[in-house]
């Protein structure tokens, strides 16, 4: 048990022990979701602002539910309805929020480093809900949680990530988290979207799908991020499906107990066909359930004060 951080900004700066602390806390909190009364007063009286400068439904909803379960007061703040549209800088927006005595800021922003910037200028706890193509730490934590829950461990597993690695903050956070916990990570996809430079993060890079998935214990599929690509980085959707799409024929190449994961939203028929997405190897919906438990754990842990962790009731 070790958590002394006031913010969750990225996976890169976490230790393996800190990651395990989040996963263990999330495991205990997941059970609360099965009770008749699913809320508890850990963040009662605290105000959380969900500052989603970039659109998101799944992550924002997941954070909102997590915050509600912890009994926090919630303010939602989206780009469309905010003064950011009127030219206000992020710093001014944030300082205004702080002037309203906000305790937590959950931020999604198109600029890498935006959460780190807020953490420097504000007193509030900052949680990164995705910054540009940099990191999406809670997604990586829920992926790790799902893998550990299903496989019993992470160390020594072969995890293959397929798709748009270059523009993916999920891929970066997953790579950091998986390698810190001792998994072997393989990246696969079109060479324009999976540059060899990623080998410097301790991954294996291959452009041969069969070779990438043959020994995999986990296959994590990423969406092609059309919105992040400045120019077309792959020849066409049909060609992507032909070379990298996962379908029942290709599942025959894999280990029988491989897990299929996807951070969503799925482009059905592109990176994965419907039969596989809804099939028995798929844990895509479990990832969504686990996402709430992980986000509850993160909010709970960063809320901790600075004092010594004394033994309860002794």
């Amino acid at each position: 048990m070790s958590w002394t951080r006031r913010h969750l900004l990225d996976i890169q700066s976490l230790t393996a022990e800190e990651i395990v602390t989040v996963l263990d806390t999330a495991r205990a909190l997941k059970e609360v979701g099965r009770r008749a009364i699913k809320t508890f007063p850990a963040l009662r009286g605290k105000t959380v602002v969900n500052l989603f400068v970039e659109p998101s439904t799944r992550t924002r909803t997941s954070f909102e539910l997590a915050e509600q379960r912890l009994s926090a007061d919630i303010v939602n703040f989206t780009a469309e309805a905010s003064s950011l549209r009127k030219g206000e800088t992020l710093k001014d927006t944030a300082r205004n929020l702080e002037a309203m005595n906000v305790d937590f800021i959950v931020i999604r922003h198109s600029a890498a480093g935006a959460p780190h910037f807020l953490a420097r200028v504000l007193q509030a706890h900052v949680i990164n809900a995705g910054d540009g193509a940099h990191e999406h730490p809670t997604q990586a934590l829920l992926d790790l949680f799902t893998i550990r829950e299903r496989k019993g461990r992470i160390e020594g597993l072969n995890v293959t990530i397929i798709g748009d690695i270059l523009y993916s903050r999920v891929a970066r956070s997953d790579i950091w988290g998986l390698t810190k916990l001792g998994a072997r990570v393989t990246l696969c996809g079109p060479s324009t979207l999976v540059p060899r430079e990623f080998e410097q993060l301790g991954c294996r890079v291959t452009y041969d799908l069969k070779e990438a998935i043959r020994d995999a214990d986990v296959i994590n599929l990423l969406r092609i991020q059309h919105e992040r690509q400045r120019r077309t980085m792959f020849p066409g959707v049909q060609e992507y499906i032909q070379f990298f799409g996962i379908n029942p024929a290709r599942m025959a190449w894999t280990k029988p107990d491989v897990l299929i994961m996807h951070p969503g939203p799925i482009n059905r028929g592109v990176e994965i066909d419907s039969e596989t997405a809804d099939g028995e190897r798929s844990v895509i919906l479990e990832q969504v359930t686990n996402g709430m438990a992980v986000r509850m754990a993160v909010l709970f842990l960063v809320n901790g004060g600075r004092g010594p962790q004394e033994v309860i009731a002794a």
Partner: peptide
């Protein structure tokens, strides 16, 4: 909870 490090949560 906000005056100390987060406690370990057990099942």
């Amino acid at each position: 909870l906000d005056q100390r490090l987060a406690p370990e949560v057990h099942p």
